[in-house]
């Protein structure tokens, strides 16, 4: 009985981290001088539906961040792109920056518990942006 439940849980809970969660590909739609906005960040997420579930919880936990603009600014800031400019950045390199940031947050313990998942702060915010 428990085995079945565990399997179902595991399937439902397929919310892995950036290596699995972010959408790979080369079709990133920013050109020179483009700005990294909420829509672009959302487009990085492979499974927005599942991310939304976590995002909903995150926003409830941190009401001060419960706005797309706030979340976008916080993510951009954490990526070292405070003015949002993503000149000449490719999708792959942005993913790489995100991945490095998330790993770094795990490394220093900047993690947050969302619905039982222990996520890096930036990836939790990315989920919240999808909500």
């Amino acid at each position: 009985m428990r085995k079945t439940r565990r399997v179902v849980l595991a399937c439902l809970a397929c919310t892995p981290g950036l290596p699995l969660m972010l959408r790979a590909g080369s079709g990133f739609a920013t050109g020179d001088g483009g700005e990294l906005d909420a829509a672009m960040l959302r487009s990085l997420v492979a499974d927005p539906r599942r991310a939304r579930l976590l995002g909903y919880r995150y926003r409830a936990q941190f009401p001060a961040e419960d706005h797309p603009d706030v979340l976008t600014d916080l993510i951009r800031s954490s990526l070292g792109l405070p003015d949002g400019r993503v000149a000449a950045i490719t999708r792959a390199s942005l993913l790489s920056v995100l991945d490095a940031r998330v790993r770094s947050e795990f490394g220093v313990g900047n993690i947050v518990g969302v619905d039982g998942w222990l996520l890096a702060r930036t990836e939790a915010r990315l989920c919240a942006l999808c909500e």
Binding site: A13, G17, R103, S104, F106, G107, G109, I111, G116, L119
Partner: peptide, 27 residues
């Protein structure tokens, strides 16, 4: 202990961890 494990899994890019509890997973 599981927080520490979650940190290492995330830092190394190996995976993510969810702590079981009646409040979240119902178990």
């Amino acid at each position: 202990a599981h927080e520490l494990l979650a940190q290492e899994l995330g830092r190394s890019g190996t995976g993510r961890l969810r702590i079981e509890s009646s409040a979240t997973t119902g178990y």
